[in-house]
């Protein structure tokens, strides 16, 4: 029973990672691709780490592994948005624009010429 729960959690994580990967391949412009990649680092990491956490506690019986898995999840979730934010802003300021016009673009209105 426990094994089934663990497997389901890992499969859910892999499912969202697959969705994010398809998004990275097929989205039309740079910023939308970045949006899709967030799927991988949130639900993908949470699902797999939750599964690994349960596995470490109940099947391996090793608290040190469980704590490390928790720390990995927490660190990925706190450091990822800083990088995503920096990449998005840097890409925009380096002059990368989507081919199709954006619906609204207040950033250009306030900061560009």
């Amino acid at each position: 029973m426990l094994r089934i729960i663990i497997d389901v959690l890992i499969v859910v994580g892999a499912f969202f990672a697959l969705a994010g990967t398809i998004g990275v391949m097929k989205m039309p412009d740079t910023f939308s691709r970045m949006q899709a990649s967030t799927c991988i680092t949130t639900m993908g990491v949470i699902g797999v780490c939750l599964g690994a956490l349960l596995y470490a506690i109940f099947i391996m019986g090793s608290p040190s592994t469980a704590v490390k898995v928790g720390v990995i999840a927490a660190l990925v979730l706190t450091t990822n948005p800083v990088g995503a934010h920096a990449i998005a802003k840097g890409a925009y300021q380096a002059g990368i624009r989507p081919e199709k016009r954006m619906e609204t673009d207040d950033y250009r209105r306030d900061f560009d010429e």
Binding site: F31, M34, A36, T38, C39, N80, H85
Partner: peptide, 12 residues
């Protein structure tokens, strides 16, 4: 950070 972490929105 919460907004960036949610898929679909990135704070620039």
């Amino acid at each position: 950070n919460s907004i960036t972490l949610t898929p679909g929105t990135i704070t620039m």
